[in-house]
Structures are given as structure tokens and as C-alpha cells.
Design a protein around this nucleic acid. Structure first.
Lengths: 144, 144
DNA sequence: AATAATTAAGACAATTTTGTCTGAATTGAA
DNA sequence: TTCAATTCAGACAAAATTGTCTTAATTATT
């Protein structure tokens, strides 16, 4: 399961990717209103991801975040690992330290298979794929 | 992913099930040494589970916890849900509120399938099944 | 140049999860 | 009956996660 932080991150990245069409930046007020997160918190999270090169940012008036075509090809797995690490995709399903390939616990192989399936889903999903799926009524900010 | 508390719980329940053969109770010192958890913390966790009827406990000298044949038939899923709730087995893989059966996100069906697979693994796994799989060198306490 | 709008950075705060302490109640044994 | 060993109960504490504030830096517009 993803941490709250990671969920916000994915939702925000998807939103920014969806709204980075015409070269204008997306700001954290708009993002937070659309993805239902605290404004300053998603600011921090995206700040982190932009330092890691997952998206661009610019300060100042009409600044915000931006995901270009290249960045939109990143997989969800990359983002998850960047925030939560890979613990979700590793380890015994029961947390037994004495469970291993050599000495598998009763659910070892089945669990591993299902966990790998989930990993593969995140690995093959890219931000681009989410561009067509939007909210019914996106909250947008007007420039005055 | 399971919470730390839930992992301790599963490990402890498995250990108690494995060591409840001959009618003697298993105490939290022995449990914590064998599953690698804080002693008093696993005490609290088992106290909770015993109130919920997952295992028996008895106070006083030579007291401890016990899992009889009937309780050993409980599934891991029951224990997980008793502690972490069922959030692990529900919801969109990306946390999108606008994702649903009617308006599925790109990974909706695949993710649901994999998540259901994991749920089924936990549902069909019982404590009994783990009885044969033990540590190489179990730490036991001697009665003096 | 001045101003307004934005992210960046780091400290701070609240909440949740994880872990501990202390004393009471209970139990079996000496 | 006394004592030692245990869980029970509830308060407490520490650590991790989630969330906020404040100031600085930057940028575009006027």
C-alpha cells in the first residue's frame, strides 16, 4: 500500500501531466484543489520530485510545475520508488525473516507472483496513459 | 502493505500456533525473542487479539497465550483485517477518487485483479499451514 | 523600478504509529 | 498463605508521518 504522501504525489503528477499541454505552468493552489490535498504539503512533495528530475518547476509570477512529453513517459513505479522506496515490491507476505527461496513459507510463491504482478502494473503504467481520464468538473483557476 | 503492528501480530500468531502443542502457554518474553519484536508491544497486540477471540490467554504463573486447533484454522486475512482493517484490499491503485468501475483508470482492472489475488492468498492461508515451518534455532525459555 | 505571484527552504506543529512504564489482577507453586 | 511470574489496563513517551508557517528567492507585469 502506498503512503499518503505517495498517493498525493501520483495524483498530482497525473494532474500536472494532464494540464501541461499548452506550455503554461500549473500552480499548487490549482493542483491541491483538484486532487484534494493540503496545498503546502503537495508543494513540498513536488519540490522533492522536481529536485529528483521528475518534473520542471519555475518560481515567480505564473510559475508552477510542468511535465513535458519526455517526463510524462516516466512510469508510476519510478515515482512510487522515489517516494516510498521499494519495500512495497519486496519481502515476505507475512514478514517472516526465516522465509526465503530456499525455505519458503506456505504463501511464498503465490504471494511473490501477485506482488510481482502489482509491480509490473506500476512499471508499465505511464503518466501519458492518464491524460485522457479527467474529473468531470475540473477546478481551474482564472487569470484575472 | 501490512503495518508493523500487523506484521508482528502475524509472526506472533504463527509462533504461538506452532508452540501450542502440548497445552503449555507461550509467554511474551519467548514470543518476542523468537519473532524479533519489542516484548511489551507484542503483549499489547496479543491482548487486543485475544479480546477479539483470536487466541486464548491466561494470567499468572506459567501463564501466556495459546492457540487451540479451532483458532489455528483462522485465516491470515481475518487477523490482518482485525488489525489494519480492509483498506489494503480496497480502493484504486493510484488513489484517484474519480476512478470507478464506470470510469476506470488505466490500471483499474489489472490492479483490481492482482489485489484480489493477494486478498485470496491471505484468505486461504491458515495458521495451521505454518506449523511445519519454523526457525532453525528456536529460542526457548527454560523453567528453572 | 516597484509590485504581485509564485516556488524554495527550513523550521515548526499536529497526528498517527510504535513502543514503554507502572501498578493491579490473577495464577500456580512452595 | 506467601511469593513469584505472568497478563491486563491505562497512562505515558518516542518516533515517524503528515501538515503548516514564515521568510527568501525568483519571475512576469505594470
Amino acid at each position: 500500500m502506498l503512503s499518503k504522501t505517495c498517493e498525493y504525489a501520483l495524483r498530482a503528477m497525473i494532474y500536472v501531466a494532464q494540464n501541461s499541454q499548452n506550455g503554461t505552468m500549473v500552480n499548487i493552489k490549482e493542483i491541491s484543489e483538484n486532487i484534494g490535498s493540503p496545498e503546502l504539503f503537495i508543494g513540498k512533495i513536488l519540490q522533492n520530485l522536481s529536485k529528483q528530475g521528475f518534473l520542471q518547476s519555475s518560481k515567480g509570477r505564473y510559475g508552477g510545475f510542468y511535465i513535458d512529453e519526455k517526463d510524462a513517459k516516466r512510469s508510476l513505479a519510478d515515482i512510487v520508488v522515489a517516494i516510498d522506496g521499494d519495500k512495497m515490491f519486496r519481502g515476505c507476505g507475512v514478514g517472516l525473516d526465516y522465509c526465503s527461496e530456499k525455505k519458503p513459507c506456505p504463501i511464498h510463491y503465490e504471494y511473490k507472483e501477485a506482488r510481482t504482478a502489482i509491480h509490473n502494473i506500476y512499471k508499465s503504467a505511464t503518466l501519458v496513459q492518464f491524460k485522457s481520464l479527467t474529473r468531470d468538473v475540473p477546478v481551474r483557476l482564472k487569470r484575472t
